[in-house]
């Protein structure tokens, strides 16, 4: 009994210590990544390639999901607003929910599972097949050559994807609200423009998506770089990327929202 309890506590303790250890390594890794980022911009082709893989390849899922989320918002919003006789506020509801919250958050979650997991798997596989070691032995720093371009590719793609998601969502809301249900097009756009503030709503939304982009890309490249060099290790790292970055997005979203919209 006492033995079981003791081993339970030592299990908790060792897990905590290793978690803190990993966090410290992740922070040091982030520092190295930033320091070694010069070549990602000097040799912009490397980064362009990664924007292609994380941004362009995520376009379809982002555009389609944005459209559907906007359409659902249009339907649900209309149903709720119609009870209070204020259908003309539909545009405001759709736009504010998307620009402030759903755009950055849902696009971030999709980005984490589409691009983040791919980045982790790719780097993890390169590690497992000794490609990173080989590069290091050729006097090419793998963090500068492999990790940094993927990180910056993700950081650059994410805000653009979130903006596309929101824009598609507004169009989806318009399709449902105005084209299908038939609320007034003028008040849909007019009320939206009167209530959505550039600085307060749109700029804050863009800042959110930038922060999410940094968080997801960081988690993805770190999990890949830190994965066990086996097939199983890579698959576990990929799962961890999706879980960790999704939690990071939601947690950061709460912090950012409370900073932005309460102060």
């Amino acid at each position: 009994m006492l033995d079981g309890l003791l081993s339970f506590f030592s299990f908790i303790g060792s897990r905590t210590i290793s978690a803190v250890w990993r966090l410290g390594f992740a922070a040091r890794f982030f520092g190295m990544l930033i320091l070694l980022s010069g070549s990602s911009f000097r040799r912009i082709n490397l980064t362009l390639r990664e924007i292609y893989f994380s941004g362009v390849m995520s376009l379809i899922i982002i555009l389609v999901s944005g459209l559907f989320v906007g359409m659902v918002l249009g339907l649900q919003g209309y149903d709720t607003l119609a009870r209070y006789g204020s259908e003309e506020a539909l545009g405001v509801l759709v736009a504010l929910s998307l620009v402030r919250e759903l755009g950055p958050v849902v696009a971030g979650l999709l980005f984490a599972s589409r691009a983040g997991s791919a980045i982790t798997a790719e780097i993890g596989l390169m590690k497992a097949t000794e490609q990173l070691d080989a590069m290091d032995m050729m006097a090419v720093n793998p963090i500068a050559r492999v990790v940094a371009p993927r990180f910056w590719g993700g950081v650059i793609s994410m805000p653009l994807l979130a903006a596309l998601f929101s824009a598609m969502g507004v169009l989806g809301g318009y399709l449902v609200g105005v084209v299908m249900i038939g609320t007034d097009s003028g008040s849909f756009w007019g009320q939206m423009q009167a209530s959505v503030d550039f600085q307060r709503d749109i700029l804050n939304g863009v800042i959110k998506s930038m922060v999410f982009g940094i968080a997801v890309s960081w988690v993805a490249v770190f999990e890949g770089y830190d994965s066990d060099a086996t097939a199983e290790g890579v698959s576990r790292a990929t799962t961890r990327t999706v879980v960790t970055s999704s939690l990071a997005i939601l947690g950061l979203d709460f912090i950012l929202t409370s900073l932005m919209f309460r102060g």
């Binding site: 596989l125 390169m126 097949t129 000794e130 490609q131 070691d133 080989a134 590069m135 032995m137 050729m138």
Partner: peptide
């Protein structure tokens, strides 16, 4: 230069 066990070519 080093030749790794399974070549470690960039895939």
């Amino acid at each position: 230069s080093m030749l790794f066990q399974f070549g470690a070519l960039f895939t």
